[in-house]
Design a protein around this nucleic acid. Structure first.
Lengths: 203, 203
DNA sequence: ACGTTTGTTAACCAATTGGTTAAACTATTT
DNA sequence: AAATAGTTTAACCAATTGGTTAACAAACGT
């Protein structure tokens, strides 16, 4: 028997907290609203997670743990660059369409509390660019791609894939498209972004 | 004589509010902190701006009014596409290095309160993509660029330019660079991003 | 069966927060 | 200079919020 008889309630809380924190952020979220969302008494939140801060961290870490492996796919994988870019773009967009709130949530809270950066850096699976950098330099050497700075290329790949999810309300407004059309556009980006990147760097 | 003897205080408040709202967001900002930042009594905030909500909207609208003309540069200008992309990228990055908080603030608050989208859409200078779309299709027709969807291209240009400012804490962590080096990288992007985009679409 | 641990609830609490008020102060008008 | 209008302040207030408590219920070990 574990410390807690069952984790039904604990799990319900985490899901509800995720929901509320992702929509309103740490400052905008209310403990009562999380309790309502989970259909439990507010005291239970503290019983299982001690404080709002700790509950938030549990949600944040879970979210980051979900995102990190996606990024490692392009940083630590061994396949050739072009193939990696195509599969990463495809997978990442598919993934994000399931969790569209994720990147915005992480970026917002990282900006709000810079301490979290140190926190996640100590994460075992924290994405690191060094391997990617070596690969890019090799491909430049053998002449499959034009000379580019690996960090800049990484930022470009990330930007093209992540930004449309982070800034969706703004982009929707600019391009004058509704939710449904925007989704279709994101779907198109699975190949459009790959082509765009490959075109930009291929010799 | 206007209603207010002078607007020194009113202006001080707006600057202080901008500072605090941009750093902490609507929910995280405290009226007392804004008053302290402006070195005035808290009651003055209400005397000049009625409520937190109205003060926030004043700050938000001012911020958006600063950003919108930058985007119109690429959407409504008449010069050839390639030249526009180069000048836009250069100008936008220069501009954002002066106001690095701006895009994140706008995106965050637009996400928090979707009503603001309608609000800014009625703005006289609200960026619109239609002219840009025509231009892209013309350049495809005459064969200077490869066939691309104008909306997707616009999203790409925006992503590559804006994301590095929105997600700077995250990117700094991934690429393991400090503030100074990151600034230098952003400086490099003025040409690197232009080249990247042009390469991607030029025939 | 019975005491003990774990889970759950309603009521409560202290601190914070946006906002108000009434009085004081300052400048302008006449 | 007296009346008036605009500006600023300290003190106050009601509502909200994160968190606590004490009593109660359910499950478990013995």
């Amino acid at each position: 028997m574990t410390k807690h008889k069952d984790n039904q309630t604990e799990e319900k809380i985490l899901i509800a907290a995720q929901q509320v924190f992702q929509a309103k952020g740490m400052d905008g979220a209310r403990m009562q609203e999380i309790a309502d969302e989970a259909s439990i008494n507010k005291a239970m939140l503290h019983y299982y997670y001690r404080s709002k801060q700790l509950l938030f961290e549990a949600v944040f870490n879970k979210a980051f743990a979900l995102l990190a492996p996606q990024l490692n796919a392009i940083l630590n994988d061994d396949s050739p660059l072009e193939q990696k870019i195509r599969s990463f773009t495809h997978n990442y967009i598919s993934f994000m369409m399931k969790y569209p709130y994720l990147p915005g949530f992480i970026i917002q809270e990282l900006h709000r509390n810079p301490k979290f950066v140190e926190n996640i850096k100590s994460n075992v699976a924290f994405p690191n660019i060094s391997k990617f950098k070596i690969q890019v330099e090799e491909e430049i050497e053998i002449g499959t791609i034009v000379p580019v700075n690996a960090e800049q290329l990484f930022i470009n790949i990330l930007s093209l894939n992540v930004f449309p999810f982070v800034a969706s309300p703004l982009i929707k407004a600019f391009t004058n498209v509704d939710d449904k059309v925007y989704k279709a556009m994101l779907e198109d980006r699975k190949t459009a972004v790959s082509d765009f990147i490959i075109n930009a760097i291929k010799k």
